[in-house]
């Protein structure tokens, strides 16, 4: 397998959020502070990698008729483990993400990668896929978090820096509250997708020029 290509796909050309549009519910709901974005991203990356490894290892053992049930059971198991661990050791993150940690069970990224990748590839490739897709998801989330937190709350690094308050960049009477409300989620997602499309096109043109120069 080409790991470099997998990384590139996860980060940009097949990014789970901006290209595959998977896991929108949590993406739109929790991207209101940097802490949330990083926490959710790492939780999903961990679960995705674990479930990808296990499902790839069991891919010849699970009959295809019951594969979805088996995958969901495995995914739900990992999600519950992560949920319990967060509750016990990082209660602040668990409180902040609330119901969206248990909801990772139905996050399409995990099942999508299990069905689309891990069930057809080796354990190593699946592990790499889980990590790359997870990083792509985290990156998209963090970008959305930074934009929404800055415009909607006027801070950077909420829940993480400056004792959880975040560093205030815009005086508190100016930020547009709607940006941390659902409407801001949709708007920001639209702009992030547009930005990633622009970037891909830009890189494409650059590559073609390079080839032409050769």
């Amino acid at each position: 397998m080409n790991f470099k290509r997998q990384f590139r796909e996860g980060l940009l050309t097949k990014n789970p959020v901006t290209v595959q549009l998977l896991g929108m519910c949590s993406t739109l709901a929790i991207t209101t502070s940097l802490f949330n974005g990083i926490g959710m991203g790492l939780a999903v990356t961990a679960i995705l990698t674990c479930s990808n490894i296990l499902i790839a290892a069991l891919r010849n053992f699970i009959p295809s008729q019951i594969r979805i049930a088996a995958y969901i059971t495995i995914i739900a198991g990992f999600v519950t483990v992560v949920d319990l661990l967060l509750k016990a050791f990082i209660p602040a993150l668990s409180q902040s993400l609330g119901v969206f940690i248990p909801l990772i069970v139905v996050n399409c990224i995990i099942l999508g990668r299990a069905e689309g990748f891990a069930s057809k590839n080796t354990v190593l490739a699946s592990a790499v896929d889980g990590i790359c897709q997870g990083i792509g998801y985290t990156l998209a989330l963090v970008i959305m978090c930074v934009i929404r937190e800055l415009l909607g709350n006027g801070t950077f690094g909420g829940g993480l820096l400056n004792g959880g308050e975040g560093i205030r960049l815009i005086p508190s009477q100016f930020p547009a509250m709607q940006m941390v409300m659902p409407v801001g989620g949709f708007l920001t997602l639209g702009f992030v997708i547009a930005g990633s499309q622009w970037l891909m096109k830009h890189l494409d043109i650059k590559n073609k020029k390079k080839e032409a120069a050769k």
Binding site: G152, Q173, P175, A176, M177, Q178, M179, V183
Partner: peptide, 8 residues
């Protein structure tokens, strides 16, 4: 106007 309810 709906957006301006950012500043309720």
């Amino acid at each position: 106007r709906a957006f301006l309810f950012s500043w309720p």
